[in-house]
Nucleic acid binder design. Structure first.
Lengths: 200, 200
DNA sequence: AGTAAATGAATGATCGTTCATTCAGTTAAT
DNA sequence: ATTAACTGAATGAACGATCATTCATTTACT
């Protein structure tokens, strides 16, 4: 059938409705209408409204991780840790920058309760931080990165910085390419704010 | 009077109830009960449940900014930009680390809708980022900081990093002092991840 | 015909909010 | 000093609107 799959159609509709009205104000009936199905049909595919949001998260993370893997594969296998970190930053911001509604759901709606946050931080997000950490450890091993830095902490800092860029982008009135933040952010994180002490 | 103020008591109760049950699941009646007043009384002091959350935010930001000002005053007036940034990071994390329930409300509950987020990002948070930015501009002027870095972006990166530390702390099972993250985070942000190119 | 998928009206539980009423405390009058 | 009148803060039962969810019925397909 041409329309991909009813379940997917409902998830797409949910993204739009949640992004626009917020998860709690959004009504299941609106999601159904937008997906072109009846309210009851939603419950043939999802256990509850909560399950809808959680499933949205799961589907997106699965897609994102697949995309991330593919992107890293496409890199020259001899890519340096620096190049790999820059690449991750680009992919991260490009993905969110491509779909504002998805970004709203991810940056805001998914974080509305400790329940969802806990789920979020113990699932694929953990893997994502782990991925960053591994790259950093590599860089430390071959001397490109300072070894006096805790790689787990550095991964969080990088994630926090990218996350803040995404949230700012959503709330900003201005129209700009989120991905364009990747370069300057990584320049700062890699090189540091302090001027190198080259007093001649 | 011994009990500070009825309005304050209600806000304190709201912090606890919102932190525990989440804003949407929390019932106004629970907040009232915890504050030791009747449900209707809440509406003598606040327009609506939303107003309760917003007022909570306003009161806390007012307190935090006052505390931040005082802290900066207490610094030697000749403090370098580096010292000032480190100081801000400490105060930021110390404040959240002192009261986990308040931290939950700030890091999670307040971010549950674009409505609150917008309010958040156009109010005192704007001033806070501006404060960071000013310190960075100072540092660039006297050559301590790289001048090829956009100070506004750097302010966001610093904020994003601290914010991520706070969120991680809330969701972590481990018990640790949030403020202890201030030093390593600022070491990373100031010095950068890359090893200085001193190949002998 | 028989099965599965889909429907959408009806249900029922859940609160935010209101407001008629109470009551403690204050003022005024005798 | 005593009583009466007044005030407005506080109460909490009741209201009413909102939705998530269900399920008896219909539709579509083999």
């Amino acid at each position: 059938m041409n329309p991909p799959d009813k379940r997917d159609r409902i998830l797409d509709a949910a993204t739009k409705v949640f992004a626009k009205r917020g998860f709690f104000s959004a009504q299941v009936a609106d999601v159904a209408k937008r997906a072109g199905v009846a309210a009851g049909t939603v419950y043939l595919y999802f256990k509850s409204k909560d399950d809808l949001l959680l499933s949205l998260f799961d589907r997106t993370m699965r897609d994102a991780i697949a995309e991330g893997r593919a992107a890293l594969q496409s890199l020259n296998h001899a890519a340096t840790p620096v190049e790999r970190l820059r690449h991750i930053a680009h992919v991260h911001l490009a993905r969110l920058g491509r779909d504002r509604q998805l970004a709203v759901v991810f940056q805001i709606e998914l974080r509305q309760s400790t329940k969802f946050m806990a789920r979020l931080s113990t699932s694929s997000l953990r893997d994502y931080l782990g991925l960053l950490r591994d790259v950093i450890v590599d860089g430390q091993r071959d001397g490109q990165f300072r070894s006096d830095i805790n790689p787990t902490l550095a991964a969080k800092v990088i994630f926090g910085a990218l996350d803040e860029m995404a949230t700012n982008w959503i709330l900003s009135e201005r129209e700009y390419q989120l991905e364009d933040d990747a370069e300057p952010v990584m320049n700062l994180l890699l090189g540091g704010l302090e001027a190198k002490g080259n007093q001649p």
